[in-house]
Nucleic acid binder design. Structure first.
Lengths: 190, 190
DNA sequence: CTTTCTTATTGAACGCTGGTCAATAAGATT
DNA sequence: AATCTTATTGACCAGCGTTCAATAAGAAAG
C-alpha cells in the first residue's frame, strides 16, 4: 500500500546482500530470483532495483567479497608453520580444493558462471585471486617454476573442483582423492 | 490456423534435432528457447512437445551423439602411428583439449551444464566417455599408472578446457598453452 | 465414397522470470 | 507550513517452459 516504509525498517544494501547471498548459495544464480529475494526481505522486487542496477550487479558485489575469503585462506596457509616447503605447497593445493568444495555455490558463481550479464563485471576478481595463488606457489616451489607450469597447476585444481561441484559431492566424500590429486600435481612440479 | 500440416512438411524428430543442435551450440542451453527453435522450424512451440517430452530431453538426445564424437577422436589417435607411446599420450591429451575448445558449446553442454532438469538424464554419457579416455591413457602410459593418477590427468585436462570455455577463447589462441599443459601432465605421469 | 479413428499441430493459457516506471508517501530541508 | 528529496510500491512488459482442448490431415474400416 504505502509507497515508502517507515524509517526503522527501510531497506539497506547490507540487508539485501545478506539475504541474496544466502539465496544464491542455496539455489544458485538462476534459481535465486529477484522476487524470492524480495519476498524474504518482505519488500517488493522493484525496491531492490533502487539499490542495485540489476541482478548481475547485485551478484557481483556479493561475489567480490568471496574472492577475498579465498585470498585469506591462501594467506593463512603461507603463515602456518610446516615441516618444509613441499608440505606447504601441498597444503596450498589441498586447501584450494577444500575451499572450492566447501563453498561450492560460491565457487561456481565465482569461476563457472556463464551468464552474459554477469561476465562483464567479473574480471578483476578471479584474476587477482589467481595472482595471489601464483605468488604463493612460486614462493614455495622447490625449484623455480615456469609461469606456464603454475598456470597448469591452477587449471588442474580448477578441474578437480569444477567436476565435483557439478556432481555436488562434498569435500568429505573426496578428501582422499583431493589429497592424491594434490600429490599428483606436486609430482609434476618437481 | 490449420491444426495439422500437410504430409510433405510434417515435423520430424530429425528436423527438430538438427535445428535445436545449431541453436544450442550457437546460444547455449538457456538462451536457446523452445520458441526460437519452433520459429526456425516454422512450427508452433507446442508441436515440439509432441516429439520430445521436454526441453531437457530434447537436449539429452542431441548431446548423447556428441559424446560419441569425442570417443571417435580418441579412437583415431590410438590408431594413428607415432614415434612412441609418449607421443601418443601427448596426442591424446592435446586432442582432448582441441575437441573441447573447438566444440566449446558442446563441451559445456556435455560436462558443465548445471540445469537440474538435465542432470537427471546425463549420467552414462560422460562416464562412458571417461572410461574410454582412461583405457586409452592406461594402454599408452610408459609405466603402469594408478587409477587415481589417470583420474587426476582427466580432471586436469577438464580444468583447462573448462576455463577457456568460460572465457570463450579459441583453440588457436591457446594451442601453445594447450601443448605445454599436456606436457606438464606427461611430466606427472612419468 | 463415407464414416470412423488415429495422429500431428495449433495457439491460448498458466505461472514463472528480469526489468521499467509513474505514482506516491516518508523524511529532510527551507 | 511548504517544498524538496528519497525510497517504495505494484502494475506492466516481453520472454520463458509447459500443458492441453480444439481441430484438421491422413489412415483404416465399412
Amino acid at each position: 500500500m504505502s509507497p515508502r516504509k517507515s524509517a526503522h525498517d527501510e531497506l539497506t544494501k547490507e540487508a539485501i546482500i545478506s539475504v541474496a547471498r544466502n539465496l544464491f548459495v542455496q539455489e544458485g544464480y538462476a534459481a535465486a530470483s529477484m522476487r524470492k529475494i524480495a519476498d524474504t526481505l518482505q519488500c517488493s522486487h522493484g525496491a531492490i532495483y533502487y539499490h542495485f542496477k540489476n541482478k548481475a550487479h547485485l551478484f557481483y558485489e556479493i561475489i567480490e567479497a568471496d574472492f577475498q575469503k579465498l585470498d585469506q585462506v591462501l594467506d593463512s596457509v603461507l603463515r602456518e608453520s610446516a615441516e618444509n616447503n613441499e608440505h606447504k605447497l601441498f597444503s596450498i593445493f589441498y586447501r584450494y580444493i577444500q575451499f572450492g568444495l566447501t563453498h561450492q555455490k560460491h565457487y561456481e558463481l565465482m569461476f563457472l558462471i556463464h551468464d552474459d550479464d554477469v561476465k562483464g563485471y567479473l574480471n578483476e576478481g578471479p584474476n587477482k585471486s589467481y595472482l595471489h595463488f601464483a605468488q604463493a606457489v612460486n614462493s614455495l616451489a622447490p625449484k623455480s617454476l615456469s609461469i606456464k607450469d603454475i598456470w597448469s597447476v591452477f587449471l588442474s585444481l580448477h578441474g578437480f573442483v569444477t567436476h565435483y561441484c557439478r556432481t555436488e559431492t562434498t569435500f568429505e566424500e573426496v578428501k582422499e582423492l583431493a589429497s592424491s590429486h594434490a600429490q599428483f600435481l606436486i609430482k609434476a612440479t618437481c
